[in-house]
């Protein structure tokens, strides 16, 4: 894809754009996941209350550590569940954006 740079060089420094695009998708996915984890753990451990000062107190710090661990656990569990439901679920329209709701070519 030309927006990622030149295309015609076929030597050792050639750029594999499919590989690059996959890396960008992976980066976006991890960033989105991280941002949601930050927001969720803020809501569970810190947020909402009027802050007495700018520091995390002991209880908040402990809560954040457990929260990150649990969030990662949940991500694993959900991933396994989605995998066990597999391609069937996707094909039948479980994934928004797929399936008959959006017409087909």
């Amino acid at each position: 894809m030309s927006f990622l740079g030149g295309r015609s060089n076929a030597n050792a420094s050639a750029v594999n754009y499919d590989k690059m695009e996959m890396a960008v998708t992976e980066l976006d996915t991890v960033t989105d996941f991280f941002n949601r984890m930050v927001s969720s753990c803020y809501t569970k451990c810190v947020g909402g209350r009027y802050p007495a000062d700018g520091d995390l107190n002991k209880g908040e710090s402990v809560c954040i550590d457990k929260c990150v661990a649990k969030y990662n656990e949940v991500q694993k569990k959900v991933g396994e569940k989605l995998q066990s439901r597999g391609a069937a679920a996707q094909a039948s329209g479980a994934a928004p954006g797929s399936g008959s709701a959006f017409g087909s070519l």
């Binding site: 996915t29 989105d32 569970k44 949940v74 991933g79 797929s98």
Partner: peptide
């Protein structure tokens, strides 16, 4: 593919909020 990943992230967020 992107929608599937977004749904995955959504489920994690919602079910974490509900369950933990």
């Amino acid at each position: 593919m992107q929608d599937f990943l977004k749904m995955y992230a959504n489920i994690v967020e919602k079910c974490f909020t509900t369950c933990c």
